[in-house]
Amino acid sequence: MNEANLATPAAAANAEKVEAKIEVKLDAKQNLEVADDQVTVGQCFTDAPKMTMRNVNVFYDDKQAIHNVSIDIAQNEVIAMIGPSGCGKSTFLRSLNRMNDTVESCRVEGEICMDGEDLYAPKLDVVELRARVGMVFQKPNPFPKSIYDNVAYGPKIHGLADTRVDLDEIVENSLRRASLWDEVKERLHQSGTGLSGGQQQRLCIARAIAVSPEVILMDEPCSALDPIATAKIEELIEELSENFTIAIVTHSMQQAARVSHRTAYFHLGRLIEVNPTEQVFTMPEHELTEAYITGRFG
């Protein structure tokens, strides 16, 4: 019964543009179905990609969460992934450092490469991958250990510091780059969970950059934070983009507009549009993107 209903807007999408727009508006509060052969519009690919994803499909058991997504992430760019709830943007992000491996029912098909190396190759070690692709989560999740130990954890397990002095230096540098040093330098050995929400999230960023990853994935890093803390994190993302490649999933379009170079719009598991951020928010190519950013649904 569902399929019969959904078939109507799908057909409409192929009809004339005006009619399609009316259809979109009519269905604004419901599912905006996209055709199975939906092709991503805009600039998906770059000349010198850091990561390349081709025809990525992600399944939870039989349910397909990501359909045929192909996109490049360029070196040192900040790419924002936006879209309504349940559109698969977080799932897609988590397949980039294979965090989805922990979900037993999850299966990833297609090709995900970093520097030309297949991340899903059988001989690849996820431990190494996650040292190269760091992650910051939605809810700040510092370890219930001291601030120092939180940041030092990564370098310790990967054996990055030979001496105590090296480790101290890595910790200080990471905290400085996460703009947290001045706030916590007097209490490095107090618990990381005693910090405020915004400080905790910056601690998590410091923890992630302490192992000098090449790419940092951020899964709605500000959704649990107040506006002031959010502003600090956004400022930080901008600074970090000088050294790192950042992929950020966000619910806030303003945030995407403020921090990212390119924006990818996901809808019901499909990548609809990828374009430079300015273009996405001023003249989106696809009507679904437009409907979303003008707030007609989502």
Binding site: N97, M99, T102, V127, F137, N141, F143, P144, G154
Partner: peptide, 27 residues
């Protein structure tokens, strides 16, 4: 033990054994 702690450890590149030994077990 909250899943967020496990994710944090795995996301840092801890192996499953390290995640269990360093984080899950103490908690």
């Amino acid at each position: 033990v909250p899943p967020s702690i496990r994710e944090a450890a795995l996301g840092m590149g801890a192996s499953k054994y390290q995640m269990v030994l360093h984080h899950v077990l103490p908690l």
